[in-house]
């Protein structure tokens, strides 16, 4: 390879600063002993976090978000696994349009789904908004991601292993449990974590589809309007950021391990 005149390494570092700089301000200010998010820093304190955990509505919102997130993760991953098996093991007629429409939620602005689902629930079926409707919306958003993760995992190992199992007389269900499932397990865990994060952080659909029970992002959004709540909001934001990051790193490591370096997955 030629040496190029552009110092790529420098660019990469500036890029990371742009990417992480603003995000890292949040945890920095959350430990700052001041009620404003301003420089110069005043000193280290944990009191914003102490105030945060005293907030009852926040804890409720946290519990709601956890419930919705876990449920969404399990359902989306189960659906995604079935879909990924269909995609990798069968030659399906009409595959292009069908998979294209399953992937639509990746592209279509969430606000469209938000208002559309709102219309059909409230105006056509007159269903009350609740955490259930939020969860259903999140499953729609998470399934395409679950499928992409699991398709790349299922493509990563040889079909012949399943065929061998079938040839040796295992019933399809046992082949699934004893061959497919264990081999797909890292992908499954990765998908569970990813779907949980998607739901846990999702704001737009939750904004349109939640009733009186708030999820954490909705609570956070409601707090942004009050300047006096800024420190607690910073603490909350930093905590969410911290948890999400750990989950995502873990999920990414699981997902990328075992994938051949020449075959990077699509996402």
């Amino acid at each position: 390879m030629h040496r190029t005149p552009i110092p790529f390494g420098l660019y990469a570092i500036l890029f990371l600063i742009f990417l992480y700089g603003p995000i890292l301000l949040m945890p920095i200010f959350s430990f700052n002993d001041s009620i404003f998010a301003t420089f110069p820093l005043k000193g280290f304190t944990l009191r914003h976090y102490e105030n945060m955990v005293k907030e009852v509505r926040l804890l409720e919102a946290l519990r709601n978000s956890l419930t919705v997130g876990v449920t969404v993760a399990v359902i989306s991953t189960a659906l995604g696994l079935l879909g990924a098996m269909a995609a990798t093991r069968y030659r399906l007629p009409g595959r292009g349009p069908v998979f294209g429409s399953i992937m639509l939620p990746l592209v279509v602005p969430s606000i469209i789904f938000g208002v559309a689902i709102l219309v059909i629930l409230r105006r056509i079926f007159n269903i009350e908004l609740s955490l259930l409707t939020v969860g259903a919306g999140h499953v729609l958003l998470a399934v395409p991601f679950a499928m992409l993760v699991l398709i790349s995992r299922l493509e990563g190992f040889e079909k012949s292993l399943e065929e061998a199992s079938a040839d040796l007389g295992e019933r399809p269900w046992m082949t699934f449990w004893r061959v497919t499932f264990p081999l797909a397990l890292p992908g499954i865990v990765s998908s569970l974590l990813l779907c949980f994060t998607i739901s846990f952080d999702e704001f737009v659909l939750a904004f349109f589809l939640s009733g009186t029970d708030q999820t954490l992002p909705i609570f956070l959004f409601s707090q942004l309007r009050f300047p006096q709540r800024l420190p607690a909001t910073l603490a909350l934001g930093s905590s969410i950021l911290f948890v999400s990051t750990i989950i995502v790193v873990f999920s990414e490591i699981l997902r990328r391990r075992g994938l051949a370096p020449g075959r990077p997955s699509e996402l």
Partner: peptide, 26 residues
Amino acid sequence: LITIPFWTSYLLRVFSWKITLGFNGA
């Protein structure tokens, strides 16, 4: 490193620009 920010809350990333660019921002 490149992927993490995308998976973290969109709302929080927008909020972080608000505290970066604001009148009394960073």
